[in-house]
Amino acid sequence: MGQLSSIEIKHFKEVREENNFTQSDFAELLGIKNSTADIERGRTKLSGKVVAELLRQFGINPLWLFGQSGQKYLQLSKGDVSPKVITVDSSDNENMVMVNQRAAAGYPHNVQDVEWYQQLPAFDIPLPEFRNATYRGFQIEGDSMLPNYYPNEWVLAKAVPDLDQANNNKVYVVVLQDSVLVKKLQKLPDVSKVLLISLNEEYFPIEVNINEIQELWQVNSKLTFNLDNPSESGLFRELKQSMEDLKRELKSFKKQA
């Protein structure tokens, strides 16, 4: 039987009392058997299904519920880049949805479609680093984030509730209106815009309006399948240096001609 922390109990009870529900009425509303008494005593785990219902019916931020954010309510307004859908497994535990390259093409257009998420693979990672927060996996496409992130690798990213909590020069999965990008983020003096930067210097930075950002996920780990080639990043740097040398030689040759 799972145990709740004091902050989860406090916040859960706060939502119930603010909305003037009895324990039994609140339980019925959230799809809980009998009463919320065991949850409020810390005897019963706060399931992913209950967390999802609190978000859907009351706009309660899951990150606030677990003490990870000071923002209690989620509103689809300027600056809100929190997840629009949270999925749970058959045991009502929140799980991690994996968005591959093909699914990423449709992700921006289905960001609030609960049924669409059900077709995507999802699982739970039983590690402390992945507890008490919402995570999602995204597959890398293209070479714009070389040499740190290679095509077909997966990044595992933590939900960011609003842009105020985003940090400069961290890598994020940025869900725009028509695309999903993995980029380093930099805030600008004009607070209505941010700069998205590729690690591969062959790509120019992209300036976007913050109202174009639907969701933001901070990358904190990755799944790689290049373990059989540990020197690949070094090889990439060598190739890049060779290309620069070749460019200089060509320029010198043109001047002599």
Rank of each mutant, 00 (worst) to 15 (best):
L199A: 04
L223K: 04
S35H: 13
S221P: 04
P83A: 08
T22E: 11
K222H: 12
E232W: 14
F66V: 13
E17G: 04
K184S: 15
V171C: 05
S35M: 10
I197D: 01
T134E: 02
Q101N: 11
M98I: 04
S233W: 04
S6H: 03
D143R: 14
E215A: 08
L76S: 11
F204L: 12
H11E: 02
S179V: 12
D92L: 03
L76A: 08
N226R: 15
E18F: 08
S77E: 14
E201V: 09
M96V: 15
E115G: 04
N95P: 05
N229V: 13
V97L: 00
D124M: 09
R237Y: 10
L146S: 07
V171W: 01
N152L: 15
N211T: 14
V99W: 00
W217F: 03
D190M: 01
S5Y: 13
S221Q: 06
Q112T: 14
L4H: 10
L239K: 12
Q218W: 05
L120F: 03
A257P: 07
L46D: 03
G31V: 08
K184W: 06
K254T: 13
D124F: 14
V99M: 00
S24P: 05
I60T: 04
P121G: 14
A257V: 13
R237C: 04
E28A: 14
G142K: 11
F225P: 06
I60P: 00
V191R: 13
G142R: 09
N34P: 05
I86S: 00
P161L: 04
K170V: 07
A257M: 15
L227P: 04
N229T: 15
M96N: 10
F253Y: 13
E53F: 09
Q119R: 15
D25H: 10
S242M: 14
K45C: 06
K72N: 08
A257F: 15
K255C: 05
L63Q: 06
N168K: 10
R102F: 11
R16K: 15
R43G: 06
A159F: 00
F130G: 04
M1H: 10
L239E: 12
F130Q: 02
W154Q: 06
P161Q: 06
I140L: 09
Q71S: 12
